[in-house]
Design a binder for these strands. Structure first.
Lengths: 226, 226
DNA sequence: CGGCATATTGAAAGGAGTCAAGCTGTGTGG
DNA sequence: CCACACAGCTTGACTCCTTTCAATATGCCG
């Protein structure tokens, strides 16, 4: 049982105060499906590995991480998703990953079958799904490059740059995730992430206000790779 | 100019000795498009990074690697493709990768636009492309896990197992690619790949006949991870 | 203003990388 | 058919980056 399922009844009500039906969730510009919005508590699961794939999800607010766990406890973070981004699209019928809220978030979700129906009837929906898939593929391939060929400092730099790009603000970022999350995403340890960040601050490239807010010092930009 | 383009005229002839038209290339069971088959020499490029995306390709025989090069010369291998597998599917209009033949190969290719046309007219074609994309995505995500969280020995083990699965023969494999290729695929150096392989042989898990042929010793299976 | 999770820092160990020889074996020419 | 040569692979010694283990500091939340 996922956290989302537990919230569903409650949230269907909240998302539809007048009881008039379901929300319309925008999957892509012009592509809309009937769905629901639910709040997910910090660290709560949206779905877990092995669950049947039932919905497609969209982050309304907050942040979600998609993870994979090895038998021996090692954890790998496949991706982070932020407001406006879709996740949970998988080809098979059971989830290969888990998804959890990094911070208290609001998640919209539509039945996978509703998306399939939409796609049957509309070319634009099919291409929207296709484009989403292509974007995920490119992201995963970039991630593999980062993990396979970049040093710790380069990985952290790439991560900060990606965060800046995706939040749209290019002179400061607020990290919603912990150092452990960053480490598991970058294939490093929290100590290495922390040390690298400290070193970047000492070198003058970035400046911290608390452990989660970073200002980029334009005078000394982060070394860029890839 | 790609090696493929250089071969194209010559090969169109060879693939169509009677001059009756183009070959039919099977993109997926039941999904067929007009295409051509060309031989590609060992180490020759099928397409290179920055080229416009014009075709979709299928390995008829041989093996292809898809690579990415960093400015400083570091190389990352995104994937290997073997007989029967499709590659070159990218969302954008310019290739983000290069593709080269690992050994002398025969490559079938169809115009991307022909696939798009096929997809317009046929539901099964759309889903074939979608499934291909989904498979690539899963592969890339698995690759990221390997690169991010597995030790050198585990990476090499995962690689050998993957090769065995994909060639269908599960007690021996013939590696078409060099140690450098393996290293660039696994995010290691050739020395580490070589040492790991030697160690596996010494431990009795595998047995070499020449540097490229491996027999799996069923008595002591490779440790399995992920 | 505590108290606990999160983050930083230090010291030591270890795994993979680097540099440098050798070795194999495959293909070619005598 | 053998010998040589070159590319590819292996092995060794040493270095270095990242991890590990351990302690201390920070800062957020009640």
């Amino acid at each position: 049982m996922t956290a989302l399922a537990m919230h569903e009844d409650h949230q269907t009500m909240r998302a539809n105060p007048a009881g008039t039906g379901l929300d319309l969730v925008t999957l892509a510009p012009g592509v809309v499906a009937h769905g629901t919005v639910a709040p997910i508590a910090r660290e709560a699961a949206v779905f877990v590995q092995e669950d049947p794939v039932t919905h497609i999800y969209k982050v309304v607010s907050g942040a979600v991480r998609v993870t994979r766990l090895l038998e021996d406890g090692r954890r790998h973070i496949v991706a982070f998703y932020f407001a406006g981004e879709l996740f949970g699209l998988e080809a098979g019928d059971t989830h290969q990953f888990s998804a959890e809220a990094v911070v208290a978030s609001r998640i919209a979700f539509v039945r996978r079958s509703a998306v399939a129906t939409e796609a049957e009837n509309s070319d634009s929906a099919i291409w929207a799904v296709w484009r989403l898939m292509a974007k995920e593929l490119a992201r995963a391939q970039d991630h593999a490059l980062v993990l396979g060929r970049l040093s710790a400092a380069e990985r952290v730099g790439a991560f900060l740059r990606d965060m800046a790009v995706r939040t749209g603000c290019n002179n400061s970022i607020d990290l919603p995730m912990s150092r452990i999350d960053i480490a598991d995403y970058l294939g490093l340890t929290i100590e290495t992430v922390s040390r690298t960040l400290t070193q970047m601050e000492r070198s003058g490239a970035i400046r911290f206000s608390g452990a989660r807010h970073i200002d980029f010092q334009t005078a000394r930009p982060l070394a860029r790779v890839a």
